[in-house]
Amino acid sequence: METVIKEKIKQIKKGNQAAFEDVVSFYQNKVYQICFRMIGNAHEAEDLAQEAFIRAYTNIDRFDERRKFSTWLYRIATNLTIDRIRKKKPDYFLDAEVKGTEGLSMYSQIAADQALPEEEVESLELQTYIHKEILALPPKYRSVIVLRFLDELSLQEIAEVLEIPVGTVKTRIHRGRETLRKRLRHV
């Protein structure tokens, strides 16, 4: 796949805008997932993911083709999201409760639409709880946890996305994991 993407990027660089469509549809879920898990609500996640793709397009000339495109794209997405989180910072922690509820409404919507059996609803509640606990992590731990366990990036890739040393990635994963352990052990 990476070679197909590389070919598309060459075409985009030559001015073929339509070639970008395939790139977007290939990466949309990954990018959206990163934004959603980090920012916590669907509306803002969509906004951020869209902005990330638009920035990738307008800056495509700066992308070094010897590197992995996904790493570069995820970096744009995480930077934008971290930036947004920072801007919301003043009311961020007060907001944590509300944020969780937004996730909840999304999940309960699914539940209402499809009238799921009891145990499935239970697991939706559990998922909402987990989602909320990930959101309660400080952003720097949240980003590594999301990239590692939801997007299944390697430690090395995470280091490249976040532009921090691998050792730092490890430390953050360990701390994030310990925090989540304390929060999820009674589930």
Binding site: Y32, A42, Q127, I130, F149
Partner: peptide
């Protein structure tokens, strides 16, 4: 495994 069990979200 709990974190990983979160169902993947897709773009709208």
């Amino acid at each position: 495994s709990l974190v990983k069990s979160s169902s993947p979200v897709s773009a709208p």
